[in-house]
Design a protein around this nucleic acid. Structure first.
Lengths: 219, 219
DNA sequence: TGCCACCTAAGACCAAGGTCTAATACCGAC
DNA sequence: GTCGGTATTAGACCTTGGTCTTAGGTGGCA
């Protein structure tokens, strides 16, 4: 039996993806998550996933940080990034940060099935156009990746809220702990990231953002 | 006589560009600047530029903020962005933020001349490949653009140093003013940007960054 | 069983950030 | 010449951020 994790915040697409997967893997045991925290909750109950399908834009991922972090949590599990974007640069970076494959949401069911089978067999799979544009990069972990993977789960969560511009007091309230605890986490985060305060942390982490296109204003 | 401003931090390229310009505009009166602050210094002495050639990556520009800011300072002056990138998305955003044209550094002298003449005549000029990919966007100022243009010159300078992760005390030292002054500027900046503290300011401004590609680590 | 990593927290303490008021000065515009 | 915007600063005041020390609780693991 195949155990599959679908992590996507779009319920409709999650359902569609589930259908597509079950068409090919009739005996599949499918788990779903609509956020990183939701994912962590069920992660402990049923660890042995055979493949993880991750939406890059899921809440809590904060650019590529979520991918980097998940990659570390599930070192051995094939990890496929699913995304609405078809930007070659984004695909390239997803692979760089440890994804075993990249499937655009526009792909056909057949393509998705083929991709997943290849990836579960240990191969890498990319859309054809991205494969052509892909330089033969070797596995290479940036300094920032290593720093992010060294964060504990709670520290990662706090980091995410920091990246939302939230104040310590607010974060403490949201996580239902004391402000002293948040401060302790912050100090630890700064040390691990090699920065001196939250402003510098934001600057360092923002380089892992996915989005360059901020052309549109509010319409 | 044609008065031209070349704003580029690369001396060699600046010289080359100067040569190219003089070949076509023999009577040109050319001013140079290697940074935004340098540009502002000579801006007051000789305002009536006929065209401004701006390197996107010049020190002090901080992504597209510098373009947005310059565009406001010289409303009527044709503004051409010169850049080493040929990324269509960057070109698109440069135009979106008010540039009248975009010339890649790889362009030939003839192409540059043609482009400048077109732009000084009031037309828009883009590389052919970008023109094809360019959707017919109408002039549209994002909320953030307007906010940045409302900054005073000194506030813009302080904002830039904030984006470097510098502390108030350090900024005060660099600008040779008191920390109280910097704090006053910060308060004004936060108000204008519609944020509550420096962390949120960084987050808001980082969306105007040029650079998505942070794939490489330190080798 | 003991060790270790993690999460939590309090208290003390200091640094940094941020607001407000009030004041002086320069400069360009009308 | 006056008015308004900008730049500057001081001082008082308060909030937020950040470090250090110490310490209790949990859960995994050998």
């Amino acid at each position: 039996m195949t155990t599959i994790l679908i992590a996507d915040d779009h319920p409709l697409f999650r359902a569609a993806l589930k259908q597509a997967v079950m068409a090919s893997f009739t005996d599949a045991n499918i788990h779903e998550a609509d956020s990183l925290s939701g994912l962590e909750e069920l992660g402990h109950k049923s660890l042995p996933f055979d493949v993880i399908l991750l939406d890059l834009h899921m809440p809590g991922t904060h650019g590529f940080s979520g991918l980097i972090y998940l990659r570390e949590q599930y070192r051995k599990v094939p990890l496929v990034v699913i995304s609405a974007t078809e930007d070659v640069d984004v695909i390239q970076r997803a692979i760089h940060f440890g994804a075993d494959g990249f499937i655009p949401k526009s792909a056909s069911v057949e393509t998705m099935t083929e991709a997943m089978k290849k990836i579960m067999a240990g191969e890498r799979w990319l859309p054809e156009y991205a494969r052509r544009a892909m330089p033969p990069t070797l596995p290479d972990h940036s300094a920032m990746s290593e720093r992010i993977t060294s964060l504990t789960p709670q520290q990662f969560r706090v980091m995410g809220m920091l990246m939302e511009g939230m104040q310590n007091k607010v974060i403490a309230y949201e996580l239902d702990v004391s402000e002293a605890t948040i401060k302790a986490h912050m100090t630890a985060i700064f040390r691990k990231l090699g920065v001196r305060n939250r402003t510098q942390a934001v600057l360092a982490l923002k380089d892992l953002a996915i989005e360059p296109p901020s052309v549109d204003s509010n319409p």
